[in-house]
Design a protein around this nucleic acid. Sequence first.
DNA 1: CCGCGGCATCGACGGGTGTCGATGTTGACG
DNA 2: CGTCAACATCGACACCCGTCGATGCCGCGG
Lengths: 118, 118
Amino acid sequence: MSTTAAPVRDAATCCAAPLTAAPLDADEAARLAHVLKALADPARLRLLSLVAAADGAEACVCDLTEPVGLSQPTVSHHLKTLVDAGLLTRERRGSWAFYALVPGALDAVAGALQHPGR
Amino acid sequence: MSTTAAPVRDAATCCAAPLTAAPLDADEAARLAHVLKALADPARLRLLSLVAAADGAEACVCDLTEPVGLSQPTVSHHLKTLVDAGLLTRERRGSWAFYALVPGALDAVAGALQHPGR
DNA sequence: CCGCGGCATCGACGGGTGTCGATGTTGACG
DNA sequence: CGTCAACATCGACACCCGTCGATGCCGCGG
């Protein structure tokens, strides 16, 4: 747990190297793997899609627990993982915590996988 | 291990749903997560990039062990994971086993993450 | 036929991860 | 001020995963 003390925006820093262009050095591979590890879970993928499809592109925890069929602590844990990976933002309004997609984060990961140069 | 007896082209079947378009159902989330889990490892990312950058876009195990700094069994294990995920192909020629990228596999994963650019 | 080199598989070990219930914290509301 | 609701954190559990050395299998060359 707590492999990352400070919130690192890995999703923004991992997209420098197109995977198929040149061999990745260990550092960049670790950064990209960190973001992909946050994505490599069915529950987190569903949470991301639920947030993206929600009204206003944001959702609170109470709206996400039932669709994914997981307990509230587990959902909070997954959301924290996604925030730490730089894929989601968290905003507290009153008693609720609203999560929203980081614009361009998923696109950055996608661009790191394929060849963006076109 | 060996969650799939038959060779499933997860990388090809997981890209049907753009993540940000509509909520993923559990089945599609599991498929996409399977491929992403294969990608979510620094060693495997480096192996992929090494294969992509190799001459002829293919490489044998003996050429990959030293760059990633892992033992030969570990490299074979990672390559098997990538093959099972539908990201690499394996071809035996003589005593060597040559691995090559599956064309379009990475692009399919990338397309599943961002909205359909096309 | 025999040895050798390349590769896959096996068994084992340590660390990471997903999940839960219980509990703490914080803000809203009567 | 007391209570409730929403959320985060904690502790614990089972399970998966990355890694290694040892070993087995398979072609090739002598």
